[in-house]
């Protein structure tokens, strides 16, 4: 791309054509809760792993919707499955299974 000297920071550029519908369907099938997140961030606020390295379920869910699958996986690779996020999630999302499912679906090439 020609650099005009201004523009979006690369990391926040979104190309929705890359959105993987099949994988998302698969994810929603094994964990329907993926749809009901309201991006409140409570999960991230209490995250055990998040105290040490960037870890965020909220971001992972958003990244998937923004077609940034690898970034989503990165946001979860430090997760210890401790379950604090499921204790605080106001939507009652089964966060641990969602995390496992995202990992299963999106790390399969």
């Amino acid at each position: 791309m020609v650099d005009f000297g201004f523009g979006l920071v690369p990391s926040s550029r979104i190309n929705l054509d890359l959105f993987d519908k099949d994988k998302y369907r698969e994810l929603v099938k094994i964990e329907p809760d993926a749809r009901i997140c309201m991006a409140c961030g409570s999960c991230t606020a209490v995250c055990t792993a998040g105290k040490f390295v960037h870890t965020s379920l909220r971001e992972a869910i958003e990244d998937i919707l923004n077609a940034k699958n690898d970034k989503a996986l990165e946001s979860l690779q430090a997760c210890q499955l401790c379950g604090k996020c499921s204790m605080v999630c106001p939507r009652g999302i089964n966060t641990r299974h969602l995390i496992l499912s995202i990992n299963k679906v999106y790390s399969a090439k």
Binding site: K51, F52, A78, L100, N103, S107
Partner: peptide, 20 residues
């Protein structure tokens, strides 16, 4: 048999246990 293969990165633990 299913979940053990899921990749993870806990490298922060070894550095963290020294400092944090």
């Amino acid at each position: 048999t299913v979940n053990n293969a899921i990749p993870f990165d806990y490298s922060y633990l070894s550095t963290a246990s020294g400092s944090t």
